[in-house]
Write a protein that binds this DNA or RNA. Structure first.
Lengths: 156, 156
DNA sequence: ACGATCTACATGACACATCAACTACTCCCT
DNA sequence: AGGGAGTAGTTGATGTGTCATGTAGATCGT
């Protein structure tokens, strides 16, 4: 990486892109999260965990695997699962193959909640992002995201 | 707004765009925030507040004005300013024209910190987003953000 | 001028996220 | 088998964000 003194400032277009991105993120995420809370009593992370579990075989996954797929820290997942467990959305089971392990399982209630929530959430995502953009913009958004996700590397 | 039952599911391209956006956001924001914390001891919101104040005339703004410009709730700003004040980055002054008002003023220390932090932060933004994209992608990102910010409306 | 109402801000309670320990189990090497 | 290193997960402290509510000063109608 170049030395700090050599890093050029953002040019006006880059500046606008960065500020635009941050504003987009603030607006869209705040609104989607608020819709989700009002419509379904879920937080955004709640929804993501339920969604991930509902797509897993047996509606269950190891805690660490869940965390890795979602790019969460294990600690975050552990804390979050504890709260979701207290609300009856998931439960923990001991892992037969690994005494240290925890399997997180979607409960019937959890399944009911995510199925109820999904259509509202889709509508919210449309209202707050997807339906505001043209098909070309959607395609570009995907392409930009893919580019970044592919190229970002851990810091030394 | 259409009834929920009528809202179509996201098509595959929209699905990928939405998931891509979420992953982009998670990756970029986590990294930029982490860099900022390591390099300068600031959180992302800290940086934004300092930056906004440093651009204000007299390095000061009313709390509510600050919140409005940054699309934050007043409550959030009030809490955040309290924490920043405890670290000596800003201070509160009573407002002469309005007995209820609070003026938030950048301290000398706050100015020093943001000036020290800025080049590192720019480098981080480049490393984690801007320099990963082509000029066309940057322009599209700006355009997408502008479109969304313009069109998003409050919910009834 | 006085009460109703509105506005600016603060606060408390709670959910969320991160980092730094810590515990308990597994794996591997000899 | 035994001991060290690595791995899976938990926990506690702290900072961050949201909502509901509280308080005091401004404003406006009469």
């Amino acid at each position: 990486m170049a030395r700090i003194e050599e890093t050029p400032w953002l040019d006006p277009g880059q500046q606008r892109a960065w500020r635009g991105y941050r504003r987009l993120r603030l607006l869209v995420d705040t609104r989607v999260a608020r819709d989700l809370a009002v419509d379904s009593g879920l937080s955004d992370p709640d929804y993501d965990v339920l969604s991930e579990l509902s797509e897993a075989s047996g509606h269950r996954r190891r805690l660490g695997e869940l965390a890795e797929r979602m790019l969460w820290s294990q600690s975050r997942m552990s804390h979050h699962v504890k709260r979701m467990q207290q609300r009856g959305l998931v439960r923990r089971e001991e892992c037969a193959r690994d005494g240290r392990g925890a399997e997180i399982v979607l409960t019937g209630e959890g399944l009911r909640v995510i199925e109820e929530a999904a259509p509202h959430h889709v509508a919210s995502v449309r209202r707050n992002l997807i339906d505001l953009l043209t098909a070309e913009q959607i395609a570009m958004l995907e392409q930009i995201a893919d580019t970044v996700v592919e190229r970002v590397e851990p810091r030394p």
